[in-house]
Design a protein around this nucleic acid. Structure first.
Lengths: 207, 207
DNA sequence: TTAACCTTGTGAATCAATTCACAAGACGTC
DNA sequence: GACGTCTTGTGAATTGATTCACAAGGTTAA
């Protein structure tokens, strides 16, 4: 398959959210124009994005809402039950552990890890905090797919190395560092500092 | 000034982080090549990014670390003390309220708001939770610049309208919705669901 | 002062993403 | 079943971002 741009995937995800809203409201069909208006893009963009994966619409009519939603779920791999671990039982880790958005989309948190002996053995939001040293054996018996890293910047690379070695194939990184991972591991970084500086730049350079 | 691409601003922010690390280690000069290697890009990209704002290097030698760092801080508008409010005193709001990265870069949290009577008047991480209804008058007397929105998806747009009306000029949105704001307001959205779906897509489409 | 060596800054070339524009279908109506 | 109206799917054109490639300047050492 042709390489798909990251921006395309983000938009598919956005379209899916709108479709689910329409589904809830019982709307049966939708045009690329309506989807575009909702997502702040153009109808041509919507059609081009979808065209990478097939043709799902009916000329003159638009797209069937439930059908397109189901196709997008399939494309995005949301049929499966992804197994997620959280490494770092601090405030952000705890906030994520109770975030409903995970489960809603088939992302199941199967364990929370930390290295702090004060935290290991305690429960946060119903999750027992486990010793990070146990990650590798744990993952051998009960393999997880995605690691969410919420440790301080200094230890994030070590943790990434560890989860990679343990066989996890994706990382969602909240530490403000650029992680190095082999290209067999999918990586997304959410860097608050960078976003804030983007706002700061915009504020300073707005007329 | 020519419009600067968002990707350029993100990279500047990244370069600054590396420069600060070098500054800490007492390294005096750095070449575009070294900066590029660190940031996973190319030296031409680094030089092009900087060239939008001036020429800061010395041919044959590279860039002075402290000088370039200071120029980048200026470009990104990090000299000023930005005033930040957090709207939504839930788990994510609380996690952000105590996040050290804010203050470190000159972002000062000046207030936390919520609408829940259970929360109003209580303290979280040393911040008194105030009634959102008071935002507009508050902001008239003590204007803030940036609103961090951590309320549920359903009320995020209302809150964005409110902060805009109250005169705040930037929004950092953690609610999983696409906000509509006038283009006098700078907006960044961090959408966990979208990032997760990006990983899910990558995992399903990796050979 | 000269020569050998670096590294910047930047037009030109390439590569990638978005938008345009229109033929091809599908539906509804008379 | 022919006509008018929609809206898709997609090559072609355009716009935007990245990479190439090299002249121009600066540094170091003899």
């Amino acid at each position: 398959m042709k390489r798909i741009a990251e921006s395309t995937v983000r938009r598919l995800s956005l379209y899916l959210r709108f479709l689910e809203e329409f589904e809830g409201r019982g709307i049966a069909t939708v045009s690329s124009d309506e989807l575009a208006a909702r997502g702040g893009t153009t109808s041509a963009q919507v059609r081009k994005d979808l065209s990478f994966f097939g043709s799902f619409g009916k000329r003159g009519l638009g797209y069937s809402v439930p059908e397109l939603a189901s196709r997008l779920r399939e494309i995005l791999g949301l049929g499966k039950d992804w197994r997620v671990i959280i490494v770092g039982a601090g405030k952000i880790g705890a906030a994520l552990a109770q975030y409903r958005g995970f489960r809603q989309r088939g992302f199941h948190i199967v364990a929370v890890y930390d290295t702090d002996p004060q935290k290991i053995g305690k429960k946060i939001d119903g999750f027992l905090v486990r010793d990070l040293a146990k990650l590798e054996p744990d993952n051998r018996s009960q393999p997880a797919d995605i690691a969410v890293i919420t440790v301080p910047a200094e230890s994030a690379q070590q943790v990434a190395d560890l989860t990679t070695r343990a066989g996890l194939r994706a990382i969602m990184n909240f530490a403000p560092v650029q992680l190095q991972v082999p290209d067999t591991v999918a990586l997304k970084t959410v860097n608050m500092a960078m976003e804030l500086e983007g706002l700061s730049f915009a504020l300073t350079n707005m007329e």
